[in-house]
Amino acid sequence: MQTTQPTTIKHEITLFAEPVTHIGNFSITNALITSWGTVLIIVLLVAVLSRSIKQIPGKLQNAFEIILEGAMSLADQVTGSRKITEKVFPLAFSIFAFVLINNWLGILPFGAFGLVEHGADGASFVPFLRSGTADVNTTIALALCAVIGSNIFGIVSIGSWKMLNKYVNLKALGEIFKKIRKEPMILLTAPIMFFVGVLELIGEFAKVASLSFRLFGNVFAGEVLLSAMAAILAYALPVPFLFLEVFVGLIQALIFSILTLVYFTIAAQDHSEHEEHETEHAHA
């Protein structure tokens, strides 16, 4: 670990994933290597599973079925309908698996293996493995999948016109001309509605930012925490924090996938219908 390394080499945990090697002008970072490892692990697990899928399940299949069943019922609680769950579940579950294994791979002590790179500001240590989710590129990619996916899902579920009106509320503006004689207040409410739509549009970008930076921040902080503890005392002290990181990894994967489910569910809901219902309710 850090204390055993020569003092001339810097051991700082960078905010970004360090490139380990280059192919052409494509730099392969340690986070990317870990992600490939994650993909490999998932592919191997699924390969072993899919070979032995039977009507009467074995141990591995049983475990998978329990996980799948539990995840499905949890997703049902979030989405509130089996139909949405069935459509979104593969994406949400893949996010969960990918993030979880990436998080946990980051905790493995292989971070001690790496190479020493001599840069402009002296030699620095570059570990071969870094949690894939401790790289903003990964988390942004996942967040984009979730948010863009949810918008596509919204278009498929309620139609592109309604989806457009969620963000650029042309319908509200149009209603000014339709209803101005009956209720003049619409001159005030319609621009507000339009502005709310713009806020929603900004909110979509905020979703990407919050999803990606929440995950990145947690995992990166975990790595920093672990190395800080190891720097204080390499023996025994990081152990409770390792357990904490295992837990954090699970929680973050869960949060990411559940938020994905939430975004998909919201996208599938028709806002205008909801509002019309409310106004009817108010009139009655």
Partner: peptide, 28 residues
Amino acid sequence: TFHLDIKILIAQLINFAVVIWVLYRFAI
């Protein structure tokens, strides 16, 4: 600061696409 790299982002997207495909097609 974060070394945002569109190439790595795309690489990670591909990774994730593989995960989705494999999990959906062969497990879920």
